[in-house]
Design a protein around this nucleic acid. Structure first.
Lengths: 199, 199
DNA sequence: GTCTATACGACGATAGAC
DNA sequence: GTCTATCGTCGTATAGAC
């Protein structure tokens, strides 16, 4: 626990925070370990001591953000019962996160991790995306969502909102995403929602 | 016109074709000019003679594929009158293209061009995506699509289908996309279509 | 754990003959 | 237009002192 008492800022945190900024601004390959070292005020030796190699930095970043994302979804699944509420809350939180931490969002779902993290599968196979599909799957069993291929339903429900996020990160969308939530969600839900029973 | 008569395969084509394969397989930064030279059977000197530098190769590839895409959309817009038909035909053709030329699709809409083509804007600002938004815009004027922000409608209509494409390129989707067309399109169109007038 | 200095390899790009 | 040979730089990673 010595690090808690130490006045020195945590090296690992410093490095990861700087790396996230540089990776998203210039990209992984256009960022040298020297750059990270200089910007973070941490020596190269320390970086290699903590992370092994450059890929290790990206890897740690990926895992950290992935775990946060997973925690977020798990929390949402505990707090809401219907697929509709769970999915809408998820989109809402992702929209908020895009505004408050655009770099984190960009690194998670916009970076081509396969290019620099060959061990990781594609993003959409990662835990968070699996959990999203589980929400959809549950919705179909509950009769909230029309019966169809789960993958198709998942893409149709979250495809629009995710596209808004990348559009926002690209500077294509001017308005803060939370202001668009109602309109975006209405379309997304309409795409997969069970038709109202004939009166 | 001497190149037409020459028995030697066109160098530019050879290089671009090889580059497309390598760029999508390993990524732009993990592909050296030496790699392209070796795989294409063309000397390094020739590559630099034709393309100036490595970025020039990627740039030429980007322009070539972008022009093809634009031509495709223009053709569709001429052959169909309603936004519904235009958009559905577009999704259908993109699905076919994903199967027949996955590398071209991947390079066009899955690569992070900003990392190696700093001059190019984001993909979604490119001509093809502008044309897609024009289809949606027209559909709204014609009363086919509910009135709403064009960007939101565009994301909602094409977000699902595009997500299926990336899912397919990632190996997440097993079935050939054209087989999913009806189900995917039904969801996509439902998301934005004007409600049927009350009987 | 943190630092500096250095080794080493790879890659982008060029020169210049044919 | 095409080729081979070469140069110079940059960046990853390590060694070893503190």
């Amino acid at each position: 626990m010595s690090h808690v008492l130490s006045p020195r800022p945590d090296t690992r945190f410093l490095v990861l925070d700087t790396a996230l900024t540089l990776f998203t601004e210039r990209g992984f390959f256009s960022t040298s370990v020297h750059d990270i070292s200089r910007e973070a005020g941490v020596s190269i030796g320390s970086i290699y001591h903590h992370f092994g190699d450059k890929e290790g930095v990206a890897s740690a970043l990926y895992e950290q953000l992935g775990a946060r994302m997973e925690g977020l979804i798990s929390e949402i699944r505990r707090r809401h019962t219907t697929a509709h509420d769970q999915a809408m809350e998820l989109v809402s939180r992702l929209f908020q996160l895009t505004e408050s931490e655009p770099r984190a969002m960009e690194f998670m779902l916009y970076a081509k991790h396969r290019e620099f993290l060959p061990r990781q599968g594609p993003v959409c196979s990662s835990r968070p995306f699996v959990l999203m599909r589980e929400i959809v799957s549950m919705g179909m069993e509950r009769g909230e969502i029309r019966p169809m291929d789960t993958l198709i339903a998942s893409a149709s429900l979250f495809g629009g909102p995710l596209r808004m996020i990348t559009g926002r990160l690209d500077g294509l969308v001017d308005k803060p995403l939370p202001e668009c939530l109602d309109a975006v969600w209405a379309c997304a839900w309409r795409a997969v929602a069970m038709a109202a029973p004939a009166p």
